[in-house]
Amino acid sequence: MYTLKKSLGQHFLKDENMCRQIVEALPVTPGMQLLEVGPGAGAITKYLLEIPDVTFKAVELDTEKVQYLEKTFPAIQGKLINESFLEMQAPFAGPFAIIGNFPYNISTQIMFRVLEWKEQVPLVVGMFQKEVAQRIAAGHGNKDYGILSVLLQAEYRIEYLFDVHENCFNPPPKVKSGVIRCTRLEKPYEVKDWKKFTLLVKTAFGQRRKQLRNPLKGLFKKEFLQEPIFTKRAEELTVADFVALTEQML
């Protein structure tokens, strides 16, 4: 058997219908490479292992779970990486999709890591705390729209797929959950300097209630700060607006 580790944010799915629904949200193509993040006790892993003509790997930090998975699912032998997703090297050469019931305490960091690998990751299906899933999927003008929304939507089309009830888990988390799918845009926005783009978005949302002229005053020439766009608040700007402003930064 295995123990649940609160320090790793472990809440394991126990509802088989929900497990299948998550796996079915992944568009499978023959020969695709697939990484599961945080397989835990193997709730969706067992279904992923059944997908034909897919090269599968899973990354799991908890050594106890690695041993449990190897004993329970012989087909996973040689496919487990006992490391932190946040510290590992890319698990495949070439493109790979990512799926997982992401540990909620590091789910935003997981998506920042996905952005580092965006050239290699065309597809992500992930379960998050519902609030985080809604933030990622939110459009401009929405109170949930924020840093992750803009950065991810510059590269991916985001779909909020469905809610997952607390009772689908052991132990039931105190928060609601949601599953989203991120599909790489055929034509991602042309962000010439990701460092500047990220700085702009983080700075703008750092004081989201203020007109942009205040938080962004150190990033642009004084004259340019007189443009009408700087009377808006961060959540009013589209992804395209942020991309265009990046071009004008000092």
Score class of each variant (00 low, 15 high):
F102P: 08
A93M: 12
F169D: 02
K57I: 00
T108G: 15
V150D: 10
K118A: 05
G178V: 06
E116A: 15
L152M: 07
M127I: 14
L61I: 11
L123T: 15
E159R: 09
E50K: 08
I180K: 05
P171S: 07
I76G: 04
G78D: 00
M88H: 01
S84V: 07
E155Q: 12
P95W: 07
D53N: 10
I147P: 00
K118I: 06
D163Y: 15
P52Y: 05
K130S: 11
E119V: 09
R181W: 05
V124R: 06
Q134P: 03
V179A: 10
N167F: 11
P103F: 06
L86C: 04
V54E: 03
L69N: 07
K71N: 12
C168E: 05
I76N: 02
F56P: 01
F112M: 14
K143G: 00
Q77H: 09
A133C: 08
Y160G: 04
R181E: 11
Y68L: 06
I110A: 11
L115G: 05
V66N: 02
T55I: 15
A137Y: 03
L48F: 02
H140M: 11
G139S: 13
R157V: 15
F56V: 00
Y104R: 03
V121E: 04
G100P: 07
V125G: 07
I180F: 03
A97N: 13
L69D: 05
F92R: 09
K143D: 02
L80Q: 12
M127W: 13
I147M: 04
I76Y: 00
E159W: 09
L151H: 00
F112S: 11
L48A: 08
A154H: 00
F102L: 08
K174P: 02
E166N: 13
A90V: 12
F73S: 02
A58C: 08
M88P: 01
P74F: 00
P95G: 03
K143H: 08
I81G: 05
Q77W: 00
I106R: 03
L86A: 05
I98L: 07
F112I: 08
V175K: 03
V114E: 02
D163L: 15
P91N: 05
F85N: 04
H140I: 11
Q153M: 13
F112V: 14
P52T: 03
T108Y: 08
C168K: 09
I76F: 01
D144W: 12
M88V: 10
H165A: 14
R135N: 10
S177V: 03
E87N: 11
P103Q: 10
N101M: 04
N142Q: 10
E64P: 03
E64H: 06
D144A: 14
D53F: 08
G139K: 14
V179K: 06
F162H: 12
M111V: 11
S107H: 06
F169K: 06
S149Q: 09
K130T: 10
A97K: 14
E70I: 00
H140R: 09
N105M: 12
R157K: 15
E64G: 01
M127A: 04
R135V: 14
S107L: 01
Q120Y: 10
G141F: 05
D144N: 08
F73V: 01
T55F: 12
N82C: 01
L115Y: 12
A93V: 10
H165P: 15
